[in-house]
Amino acid sequence: MSSSNGSPLNGLSLSKPLAVFDAGIGSYAIVDLIRRRQPRRDILYFADRASFPYGGKDRAALLAIIRATIRFLLDHEPEAIVLASNAPSIMVLDDVKGSCSVPIYGVAPPLEEALARSRSGMVGTMGVRSLIESVELPGFVRDRVPDPEHVALIEASDMVDLVESGAFLSDPERTQKAVTAFTAAIATRWPAIDVLTLSSTHLPWLRSFFEQARPDWLFLDPAEAVAAALPLPRSGTGRTVALVTESRTYTVAGFRKMLDKLGVTLDLRVVDPLVRPS
């Protein structure tokens, strides 16, 4: 057990940290946003690469992963937890909140804001396949907007791959061509759309590419609402510690390389995978 001054588990020595987790590099954008808003906050960032991609898993697999991850993070005595991934936030978060002893925040499409800022009244939500094809997302939309038919659900897994592969850093010209073609297809199918939510934590990394492709559209990052909703830290020194798992495909070496390309320096510690979905 740890003292009230912080959690010494694995020598982390963090003071009531905010735990932020996801399976990919995309969620680091949320960590960076929180850090800019709360510079004194201690943050425990967990990148569960062994479970990547969340977006390719069904509801049962996601539920098992998220439950195991929350149990693991609670050992570090966080003040709160952020599930920094849109798909599980929509698909399974309600099922795990009741068993979590600290507040847990998810990331969800800011549909009300999107429609309020749309000139045409037609908006879109971009996300990974599992989210877009889930039974939960249409229900989420119906609960929040009076006219669900005014919200297009747009599968954007190919865009997520541009981030996870690092192509958006290593080959920006190819990335821009891919984003331009993708948005052109959206405009053809839904010509009235003028606001899109970046409803995968990877997609905000492509925001400048989207804005160059469609300067007449507005792109909203759901993470901004999460960061604004978090309580102010009661203690902390502004330290960020990253825990990472790995698989044969998604290695720690690859994760370090991606962080280096982003210019991010982290205290990085490798831990064993929590769940190995079949």
Rank of each mutant, 00 (worst) to 15 (best):
V141A: 08
G238E: 09
V128F: 11
D42V: 08
A192F: 00
V275G: 10
E112W: 04
R207L: 15
S208I: 00
S85V: 01
T251Y: 06
R144D: 07
L232A: 15
A60Q: 15
S200P: 02
T125W: 01
I154D: 12
V179R: 02
P191T: 02
S199C: 11
A29D: 02
A114C: 10
E136P: 01
H150R: 15
T245P: 13
L206D: 08
A61H: 10
F46Y: 14
P277M: 05
R117F: 12
R207W: 09
I132W: 01
A187I: 02
F46G: 05
G55N: 10
E155G: 01
F219Q: 03
S199E: 09
S3R: 13
N5Q: 15
A152C: 05
V241F: 06
V128G: 14
L198G: 04
R269V: 14
G56F: 08
R174C: 13
L9W: 00
L206C: 11
D161T: 15
A80F: 03
I25P: 06
S235C: 15
R117T: 14
A108P: 00
S85N: 12
L218H: 05
G166P: 01
P172S: 05
S235Y: 11
S199G: 06
P172V: 03
E136M: 04
L74I: 02
M159W: 07
S7A: 12
T237W: 06
R119T: 14
R248N: 14
R234G: 13
D171M: 08
L44S: 09
S4K: 14
Q38F: 15
M159D: 13
G127H: 07
L262S: 04
T237A: 15
W217S: 03
D94S: 12
L169S: 12
A213M: 07
F168K: 07
I43R: 01
I90T: 13
P110W: 07
L268Q: 08
C100V: 08
S247N: 04
V271M: 11
L115E: 06
H76Y: 13
A178M: 12
A108Y: 10
V151Y: 09
R214S: 13
D22C: 05
L153T: 05
I25S: 05
R248E: 15
R129S: 13
V264C: 11
V123A: 08
S2E: 15
F182E: 07
E133S: 13
P146R: 03
P172E: 11
R144E: 09
L111I: 14
I132C: 05
P53L: 09
Q176G: 02
F209D: 08
V20R: 02
G236R: 04
L131V: 00
W205T: 06
E79F: 06
T183Q: 14
F219E: 03
T197I: 12
A50R: 04
S247T: 05
E173T: 15
S118L: 09
I154T: 11
S7C: 13
G11R: 01
R207S: 12
A116F: 01
R129Y: 10
R49N: 10
R41D: 03
V226Q: 08
A80G: 05
H150W: 00
W205P: 01
S51D: 07
M122N: 11
V96W: 01
G166Q: 07
V179F: 02
L232Q: 14
R71K: 10
